[in-house]
Every structure is written in C-alpha cells, then in structure tokens.
C-alpha cells in the first residue's frame, strides 16, 4: 500500500469531521510516519522499504480512522460554533448597512463638546456663550448660547440649546421641545417662537422669548412624566439698543 492510499483509507472513515479537522488528522499521521521513517533511514533502510514497513507497523487504516474520530466528539459544539459564525457575518453586514447611523453618534458627541447653531437675530445687542445643563429623563438639555437682540421688530432673548442622550451612542427623545417652556421669572412670555434641526443623536433648538424692559434672567422649565426641572438662564449684559 502506498502512503497516499493509506491516508485515503484513514480519512475515508472520518466523514463527520470538518475539512480543517481532516487536514489536522492527515498532518498528524504524516508527522508520525516521517518520524518512524527517519529512524529507519538512519538505520540504513532503503526509503521505499522503510515506508512500506512503516505503514504496515501503523496497523489497519480503518481502525486508525475510527480511533482518531473519537478525538473529535461534540457535534453540538460544532453547530453552535457555526451558528456563532453566521451571526457574526449577519451582524457585520447589518453594521455596513447601518454605517450612516454613526453620524448620529457624531452629532451627539458634538453637542456635548462643541455645539454649533447660527444666530437668527436681525440685530444682536449682546451675546454670550454659556454652559448650562439640565437633566431631562435619560437625556441632557444644554443651553450653550444666550443672546439679546431684535427679531421681527421685537426685543427678544435667543436661547440656543441642544439635547442629547447621556450615552454618546444613544437616542435623544424626539419631542422634548413640547415640554420645555422658557419664560421670564414669575410671568408668562408675551411672545415665543422657535426653530431647530437635529438627528437621533442630538437636537438643536433656538427659542425666542420677548423681553420686558429690565429683564435680567429667564427660567426654563421641563415637566413631563412626573419629572419637573427648572433652570435659570442669566441674560448677557452690555450692548446697546438699535
């Protein structure tokens, strides 16, 4: 019997093994035969004869195959492993399809580090960067700029704010603006309007509140689902009326 014939007969009885496992068995047997042949060649045997004797000494190839197959038990593990590989592949495809969602995470990070939104006042009397944060459920509402100026012929305060989830990759609640009110302390603003933009990661809103003469601060209140929050927003000083 040739070495190839011997190998083929051993591997024939290893039908329940994976290709990788079969290759491992083949390599193990090859190594074993080579070790034996090396000894016999050192003893002065001719290579052809040494190989023949080696294969004879190994025993019945079918029996060897059966014995080696016993080392590879546990088909449940095999299928579980395959399921894990399949799940990983599916998840990688989903991640590729959902790569655009990462822009939301970028928005969320930007909102906590460097929020940006252009002013829409017709004329700015005074403006100042602030960093006032208020918890709002699982989200955080941040006021990052307060300006005083003119809009639609009214003297208003422009409150630039953004909301983001506490978890940088989380989702911000979509309709929080409905539950946030900004008014002068102990009074109702005579006029309010707002504009905004945003994504699932962060939402930006600019609210305009008409100011009474001498107003120094505004109060922002959030009330929803049994939660109540208040935040005082000081108005920037300086500037001159147009």
């Amino acid at each position: 019997m040739t070495r190839q014939g011997f190998m083929d007969r051993v591997l024939l009885s290893l039908t329940r093994l994976t290709a990788e496992e079969r290759e491992n068995v083949r390599q193990e047997l090859e190594e074993h035969i080579e070790d034996r042949m090396e000894v016999m060649l050192e003893m002065g045997w001719k290579p052809e004869l040494a190989e023949e004797r080696c294969l004879e000494a190994m025993g019945d190839p079918v029996e060897i195959g059966r014995e080696m197959a016993k080392q590879y038990r546990g088909r449940g593990w095999l299928w579980l492993g395959r399921a894990a590989v399949l799940l990983t592949v599916v998840l990688c495809i989903q991640a590729l399809l959902g790569v655009g969602i990462l822009f939301n995470a970028w928005d969320s990070l930007e909102a906590r580090v460097n929020p940006q939104m252009g002013s829409r006042l017709d004329w700015t009397e005074s403006s100042g960067q602030v960093d006032l944060r208020m918890p709002m459920g699982n989200d955080v509402l941040r006021v990052f700029r307060v300006s005083v100026g003119k809009r639609e012929e009214r003297r208003v305060a422009e409150i630039a704010m953004c909301a983001y989830d506490r978890w940088p990759f989380g989702i911000v609640a979509y309709d929080w603006q409905r539950y946030v009110e900004i008014n002068p302390p102990d009074a109702e603003a005579p006029y309010r309007s707002s504009n905004g933009r945003g994504s699932c990661g962060a939402e930006y809103v600019q609210t305009y509140v008409e100011l009474e003469p001498g107003a120094r601060s505004l109060v922002m209140a959030y009330e929803r689902f049994g939660e109540s929050q208040r935040l005082e927003i000081p108005l920037p000083e300086g500037g001159e009326a147009p």
Partner: peptide, 24 residues
Amino acid sequence: RRTLRRLLIAAAALCLVNRIFLIG
C-alpha cells in the same frame, strides 16, 4: 474551545452593533 472563541466574537459583535449602530 473553538466554539467558545466564536461565541465570544459573536457576542462582542452583537454588543457593538446593538449599542453603537442601534440595530441587530
């Protein structure tokens, strides 16, 4: 051992896709 390693990789991928991409 190989299955446990694959399960660990799948769990890490699942966690990443669930928490970062919010899908899967």
